Amino acid sequence: MPTADAVDLSYAIGLPPEEAIAYFKEKGYAISFKWQDVWAEAHARAFTVSGITRLDVLTDVREALTAALENGETLADFQNRLQPLLEAKGWWGKGRIVDEATGEILGKRLNPRRLETIFRTNLQSSYMAGRFQEQLASAELRPYWEYVAVMDNRTRPAHRSLHGRVFRYDDPFWSRFYPPNGWNCRCRVRTRSARDMERLELLASSSEGRLEEVDQPIDREGNTRKVIAFNDPATGKRFVADPGFGFNPGVAAYEPDLSRYPPELAKQYRKYKEAA
């Protein structure tokens, strides 16, 4: 078992929470050539892989991801399951698929590097959606949520800057920056009780007055999208999730059974939903 501070995705998906599996299974499909075509919350509601424009290939990828989530499979298991199917259909390798008769670009092939990004991002989003539901359900006892980054040489500086920061569960910060906050993001959230806060001498931060709408570049052509940024008083810098992220996957995709929540927590969930 990993230590409390370790983030081992294979261990996480090996547990798999029912909420995470439900999140992934309830997604519909969206066909897109560019990842920018299916934006943020829409990505949480519809499964898509940029460059895959054939529904049968998209279905193959989704079914392989579902199996990995349900069975606690590794990246290698995922690739071994999917690669023969992609090879048979001509979608494995490098480069684009082009119609020889018309010259039309039909899609982009998949390779080990792209499969790793697809695997980690989709399973991390699904797992974190399940984690959010569980954590919100117990927020009366553990109302303080701590941002936890993996502090190694692969961690983005911006994500590193949030490591150890604590916000209450009902702070608007979590409606936009509950992990993952980017491609291959490995961050997570740990809950704390009032007793934990006192024992560990932790201080809660607040995003009040520090969230603002900004223009974020999303491609090399200079196109932008309106996103929410957090002006961090601890660093003096602006934190913005990677393009296409910046939403809470546990809120955007589906509605939990709020009857099992205490009234105050159900009310807070609805606030999250409005913010999404």
Rank of each mutant, 00 (worst) to 15 (best):
R114Y: 09
R114I: 15
L115M: 15
L115P: 03
F119G: 03
F119W: 07
F119E: 02
F119C: 06
T121P: 14
N122F: 00
N122W: 03
L123M: 14
L123T: 13
L123K: 09
L123S: 03
S125G: 11
S126L: 10
S126E: 03
M128S: 13
A129P: 04
A129I: 08
F132R: 05
Q133K: 13
Q133R: 15
E134D: 10
E134Q: 12
Q135G: 02
Q135K: 09
L136V: 13
L136S: 10
A137I: 14
A137C: 11
S138H: 10
S138D: 12
A139D: 06
A139K: 05
E140G: 06
P143Y: 00
Y144K: 09
Y144R: 00
W145P: 11
W145R: 05
W145E: 04
Y147M: 00
V148R: 11
V148M: 07
A149V: 13
V150E: 06
D152M: 14
N153K: 15
N153A: 11
R154T: 10
R154K: 13
T155H: 02
R156F: 08
P157E: 09
P157M: 12
H159R: 08
H159V: 14
H159E: 09
R160K: 15
S161A: 15
H163N: 14
V166H: 06
F167Y: 12
R168F: 01
R168E: 07
R168T: 12
Y169V: 15
Y169I: 09
D170V: 14
D170Y: 04
D171A: 07
D171N: 12
D171E: 10
D171F: 05
D171K: 13
P172S: 07
F173M: 06
W174Q: 12
W174V: 13
R176H: 09
R176I: 01
P179I: 11
W183K: 09
W183L: 11
W183M: 13
N184K: 10
N184T: 13
R186D: 00
C187P: 10
R188F: 02
T191L: 03
T191G: 10
A194Q: 09
A194D: 07
R195S: 04
R195W: 01
D196P: 04
D196Y: 00
D196T: 04
M197Y: 02
E198G: 01
R199Q: 08
R199G: 02
R199E: 03
L200V: 05
E201V: 00
L203C: 05
A204Q: 05
S205L: 14
S205R: 15
S206C: 14
S206L: 12
S207Y: 07
